[in-house]
């Protein structure tokens, strides 16, 4: 539908979707907004900077006020893990987690899996390498759960400071070297390195990180010849991914963004009473 000339259907006319964003986001918020609008829902964006959050209102009070205005779906992005869980327990509306702390980002995992399946025709049996700051990554967690469920094999790699405790117990293989994780990979997911984390001393410098954990022309040769390169964005060119790889033939980074709209449209449709 996103490729049609008139990109709008009346399916969700009269439905209201609130995008409640407590954390900065361009891609995810825009994606949800476009998804809602293409289905003719009324979408309202609330960002923490402009709402009563700055006046010290609690999430619980914000939720009750939103509920009183009777929207159909609340999409929440929050820096605190579990915030969508808290919200869902309070309101009668459907709640979509658009990313909570280092916990989960389920719609990202859905769009990633959609992208892989569109390109590879399957998920089962594929070897997926997720590389970077696993400890702080909600994208990694949701993808691990989703991909494992669909029968893929998942390896993760990063410096030990970026590996969450007992990650192996989630059924993944963990490596401290990127080269090991790349061997035979059908898909490589690079994670964004958050520069501000340098202050927590989980890596000494971007320079050193890039020397050992940047996906480039050389180390990608360890993966399958038809490897897919993915990244949830926004990318740090030259830090975790070389520009020629991000823009190169293996990259499906922009397909991910396109599929994000489709996945979110499907989700909104299903949650507002549509039948699969």
């Amino acid at each position: 539908m996103s490729t049609r000339e008139i990109k709008k259907v009346p399916t969700l006319r009269g439905k209201t979707i609130v995008n409640l964003f407590y954390e900065a986001s361009t891609r995810t918020r825009t994606s949800f907004e476009i998804a809602g609008k293409r289905l003719s829902a009324d979408t309202i964006n609330i960002s923490a900077a402009t709402s009563s959050v700055v006046k010290g209102e609690t999430l619980i009070d914000t939720a009750r006020n939103l509920e009183a205005m009777n929207p159909d779906v609340i999409v929440i992005r929050h820096s605190a893990a579990g915030a969508p869980h808290l919200l869902a327990g309070l309101v009668k509306q459907s709640v979509i987690n658009a990313g909570d702390g280092a916990h989960e980002h389920p719609t990202q995992a859905l769009l990633d899996m959609m992208t892989i399946r569109a390109k590879k025709g399957r998920l089962e049996g594929l070897q997926i390498a997720i590389i970077g700051d696993i400890a702080h990554s909600r994208v990694a967690r949701s993808n691990i759960y989703g991909l494992k469920r669909m029968g893929a094999r998942v390896t993760v790699a990063g410096p030990a400071t970026m590996m969450p405790r007992d990650i192996e117990q989630l059924g993944v293989e963990a490596h401290s070297s990127m080269e090991e994780a790349l061997v035979g990979a059908d898909v490589v997911m690079m994670l964004r390195i958050q520069i501000e984390r340098q202050h927590q001393n989980i890596f000494p410098s971007l320079r050193e990180y890039a020397q050992h954990f940047c996906l480039n022309r050389k180390n990608i040769a360890r993966a399958q010849p038809d490897v897919l390169v993915m990244h949830p964005g926004p990318i740090n060119r030259g830090v975790e991914i070389a520009p020629d790889i991000a823009d190169g033939p293996f990259s499906v980074i922009l397909d991910q963004v396109t599929n994000g709209v489709a996945v979110r449209m499907a989700l909104l449709y299903l949650l507002t009473g549509g039948n699969a």
Binding site: A81, H103, D166
Partner: peptide, 15 residues
């Protein structure tokens, strides 16, 4: 507590 549950819940751990 820093352990599997914290990893799954995405909460910062206390070792």
């Amino acid at each position: 507590h820093e352990g599997l549950a914290a990893t799954e819940l995405g909460l910062p751990g206390i070792p």
